[in-house]
Measured scan of single mutants.
Amino acid sequence: MGSVRTNRYSIVSSEEDGMKLATMAVANGFGNGKSKVHTRQQCRSRFVKKDGHCNVQFINVGEKGQRYLADIFTTCVDIRWRWMLVIFCLAFVLSWLFFGCVFWLIALLHGDLDTDYKDDDDKSKVSKACVSEVNSFTAAFLFSIETQTTIGYGFRCVTDECPIAVFMVVFQSIVGCIIDAFIIGAVMAKMAKPKKRNETLVFSHNAVIAMRDGKLCLMWRVGNLRKSHLVEAHVRAQLLKSRITSEGEYIPLDQIDINVGFDSGIDRIFLVSPITIVHEIDEDSPLYDLSKQDIDNADFEIVVILEGMVEATAMTTQCRSSYLANEILWGHRYEPVLFEEKHYYKVDYSRFHKTYEVPNTPLCSARDLAEKKYILSNANSFCYENEVALTSKEEEEDSENGVPESTSTDSPPGIDLHNQASVPLEPRPLRRESEIGSRR
Rank of each mutant, 00 (worst) to 15 (best):
Y344L: 12
Y374D: 14
R432Q: 15
P274C: 11
Y9H: 11
Y117M: 00
E280I: 08
G223S: 12
Q41L: 06
V260L: 06
K196H: 08
S291V: 00
N297W: 04
V158H: 00
S321C: 14
N360L: 05
D267V: 03
K292R: 12
V388C: 12
S365Q: 01
I164Y: 08
F30T: 15
D284W: 11
D78I: 06
Y345Q: 13
Y374G: 14
L94A: 10
V37E: 15
L97G: 02
C101W: 03
L290Q: 03
V134W: 01
S136N: 09
I328K: 00
I11C: 14
V61S: 14
L363Q: 11
E161N: 10
K118A: 03
T75F: 13
E16F: 04
K354G: 13
R221Y: 00
Y288A: 02
Q172A: 04
S350M: 07
Y334G: 01
M309P: 10
I72G: 14
T409R: 12
K215V: 14
A27I: 07
D254Y: 04
E397H: 10
M219F: 07
P274E: 09
H343Q: 11
E327V: 01
C43P: 14
T74Q: 12
S136E: 01
S273I: 03
C162Q: 01
K196Q: 09
D180Y: 06
R40F: 06
D348I: 01
M188Q: 11
V126D: 07
L142R: 01
T409Y: 09
C383A: 15
L105D: 01
V403W: 05
A421N: 13
T391L: 07
E426W: 03
D122R: 00
A370M: 07
L240M: 05
V12D: 15
Q238Y: 06
R80T: 03
L94F: 04
C130R: 03
I59A: 15
F88N: 07
D289T: 08
V303N: 02
A22F: 05
P427F: 04
M84H: 11
Y344C: 12
T159M: 02
P163Q: 05
S411A: 14
F58A: 13
G214K: 14
L201E: 05
S246H: 08
H353T: 02
T74A: 14
Y374R: 12
Y153M: 05
T23F: 07
I266R: 13
D160P: 03
Q293S: 14
L201A: 12
V166R: 02
N380S: 12
R80C: 03
H353A: 05
Y250P: 15
L417Y: 09
A165S: 03
V423Q: 13
D17I: 05
P252E: 15
S434G: 13
W83T: 09
H38N: 12
P427C: 10
I178D: 02
W330A: 00
D213T: 10
T149W: 02
A140L: 02
L390M: 13
W81L: 12
N378M: 07
E15L: 06
D78P: 09
E400S: 11
A210M: 08
M168K: 00
E426H: 05
S246M: 08
L108T: 14
L108F: 08
G214C: 09
E395A: 08
V4M: 04
A91K: 09
Y344Q: 12
F339I: 15
R82E: 10
D71M: 06
C364S: 06
Q318N: 14
G65K: 14
K64M: 03
K354S: 08
S406R: 08
R431Q: 04
P404N: 13
N297F: 12
D257G: 08
V358F: 03
N28A: 11
N380C: 10
S3L: 03
G18W: 03
G308A: 10
S411P: 09
Y68E: 11
I59V: 09
V93E: 02
S14I: 06
Q41V: 09
N32K: 08
D71K: 14
N60C: 05
E371F: 03
E15P: 08
N60R: 13
A366H: 00
M188E: 02
G214M: 08
L90W: 05
A27E: 15
K373T: 11
T150L: 02
V222M: 06
R80I: 05
S350A: 11
Y117N: 01
E307I: 04
D416P: 07
V126W: 07
L363G: 07
E435D: 15
S322N: 00
K241H: 09
I179L: 10
I275V: 09
M188G: 15
N198A: 11
V303I: 12
L105S: 09
S399H: 09
P163K: 06
T149L: 04
T149R: 08
R80Q: 07
S204Y: 00
A366L: 00
E283M: 07
S144W: 00
N378V: 08
T75W: 08
T409Q: 08
V86K: 02
T317Q: 09
K342H: 03
E15C: 05
G18I: 06
K346D: 03
G265W: 11
S381C: 08
R226I: 14
N380F: 06
T159H: 03
S392N: 14
S204R: 00
I72L: 11
K215H: 11
V26K: 14
S321E: 04
D368Y: 05
C76A: 11
L105M: 09
D51C: 05
G31Y: 06
E397A: 08
F171E: 01
L85Y: 03
K64I: 11
D121G: 14
M84S: 03
F143P: 00
G176K: 04
L69Y: 06
F203N: 01
S242P: 11
T115G: 08
E387S: 01
T276F: 06
L97N: 02
K342E: 04
H279T: 02
G2S: 11
L21P: 06
A207L: 01
I209A: 01
A107I: 03
I106P: 00
